[in-house]
Design a binder for these strands. Structure first.
Lengths: 252, 252
DNA sequence: GTATTTGCCTGACCTACATCAAGTCTCATG
DNA sequence: CATGAGACTTGATGTAGGTCAGGCAAATAC
């Protein structure tokens, strides 16, 4: 059975790690069955967030990290002059909130881009559980390290790439994330608006729009509102520059 | 005795965590004495790197994280088209190499900007020691979380700030890091070149140069080669926007 | 000592992208 | 069904910062 044939995980809140199709991507990877059980017990499944609802606010006391189960989140930072700077988009199986550990305060807010359900993982529990399960601790180190790695790639993007490369990079990045979860890597739906894309990439909305219509004219992608299909994969890869995503070789 | 009156830590390679004036800033914070001892035993003090020498190369197998004891490092990423993108500068007490944990490969290189000595902390040892010392594990989580936090601030900088704000942010950031180690927050020496600053901030060398001379003309800073003095602190803070560095309140 | 390289500064010019302005399209709501 | 508010697109224009080119000074080599 394919990992994604099921729709169980938005059906009831009681679903568990063992039966969750994301479990291989999420934290429990590399854990023994009994350990997954123990992890499972500290996780709280909350009722889904509606579009626009906030999971946690910048400045709030840190308590939990969250694994996205369905839907998408954005995290953002309100800058001193009041503008929002989006720092990331989070898809199912991805962990949000790690930046709160340092100061026990969330330095960013997290908001749902669509109806989104998450698993809440109280960090104090996770931490004490990680005392008992060394491989869980290693797993957390890895997840955090990967985040550092990804953020550094993002810096390269923001610092060195032009508008075309930025947009192509985002699309290819999303493509890879869909693929990893078993969805099509070439055809998908953007859950964020053009404005949010621009904000994230350091571009004006208009630029995002222009780049995407130009890509479409040049038969690199096909766009229909939020639906995107990548047509000319080599062209996209060339724009991104192969060897993205740290040095990570995608083994999936 | 001030934390910085001593010069012991570049005098001999055998210096230990207990006697290191950086220990309060580095990993051992919040560790019991006996635990510091145990940590101390896994750390290898290497002979100093000369300017331009590489600590580890992008793509190399990951083995250790490093704490800078004296001097400065930069980390950088060679992009697909062969250019270098600097992802960070590292001052004494700061930890380099955390991004290697994820894939067991360093995704960046680290190079000395001046004569630099480091403590090598073999990660496998650190990890197993962290099984025995929960507070050490927490400390590692915190350090990694802080890194994520800082990187996100860097994204805001690269995505939203103009040249003046970028340069001001870097100077103020360095200022804060000097201060934390007990040095002057207003007068310090840049260990990186203008080119490296530009590269890091996503600016051309010429722009960095122009911004700094303009700052000087407007009596905001005083520049003499690599020596910088901040004259008009409020102006600088205004450029940076107060409330930098995540939401962290500097308690030092 | 001179030659050469390297880092930094400065001016003139150019371009990629932002900004402004005016649509069109979508879709939610009374 | 009409209406109104967002979200998206497109064109015209402006500008911050990049690029190019030249020059000086300090460091390094010869």
């Amino acid at each position: 059975m394919s990992a994604l044939q099921s729709n169980r995980f938005n059906s009831k809140l009681t679903s568990q790690c063992q039966s969750c199709s994301l479990s291989a991507l999420c934290l429990p990877i590399a854990l023994a069955d009994e350990d997954v059980n123990r992890l499972d017990q500290i996780i709280e499944r909350k009722k889904p967030l509606k579009k626009g609802e906030v999971l946690f606010h910048q400045g709030e006391e840190f308590s939990s990290v969250y694994a996205v189960r369905t839907g998408t989140l954005k995290t953002f930072n309100i800058t001193n002059n009041g503008e929002e700077q989006i720092t990331g988009f989070y898809c199912p199986s991805e962990l949000v909130g790690l930046s709160g550990i340092d100061n026990n305060i969330y330095p960013i807010s997290a908001k749902a881009l669509e109806t989104t359900s998450v698993c809440e993982i109280p960090f104090s529990h996770l931490e004490s559980l990680s005392n008992q399960i060394p491989s869980l601790k290693s797993q957390i180190f890895k997840v955090m390290s990967r985040k550092i790695c990804d953020d550094q790639q993002m810096m390269v993007l923001l610092g060195k790439k032009n508008a075309d490369e930025k947009v192509a990079s985002l699309l290819m990045n999303l493509s890879g994330r869909f693929k990893r979860r078993g969805y099509s890597a070439v055809s998908f739906r953007l859950s964020m608006s053009r404005g949010e894309i621009g904000n994230y990439l350091g571009l004006a909305v208009e630029t995002v729009s222009r780049v995407m219509t130009r890509f479409q004219k040049n038969n690199i992608i096909q766009v229909n509102g939020k639906e995107v299909t990548i047509i000319d994969l080599p062209a996209m890869q060339k724009l991104v520059g192969i060897a993205e995503d740290c040095v990570r070789i995608d083994t999936v």
